[in-house]
Amino acid sequence: MFTTRKQYHPYVSPFDPCHPICTKTYVTPPNLYIPFQPPNLPQFPLHEALKKGTLWKVFYDPYYGPYETAYKGDIQ
């Protein structure tokens, strides 16, 4: 399996004017890892799929901002 969040640590200079952000993150969404969708992948129930924006569990990758917390059951 793959992860959809990555981190790196940029160089921090002692002369940087702003308070340094030591860990930077970026997103690597599921579509990067699945070149062509294979048949018979697990699905969400239809009503849930309509809410989530995809029928396919493997492509579901919700994004939450700093002012909110992830719902239970969602991968972060």
């Binding site: 969404p29 699945i34 070149p35 924006g53 995809t54 990758d61 919700p62 994004y63």
Partner: peptide, 21 residues
């Protein structure tokens, strides 16, 4: 609002997948 934006963002992932396919 974020709830709606999250839905739209998920659709972008699916569209990118389909274009790759």
């Amino acid at each position: 609002l974020n709830d709606g934006l999250r839905f739209l963002r998920e659709r972008e992932i699916i569209h990118a997948q389909r274009f790759r396919e």
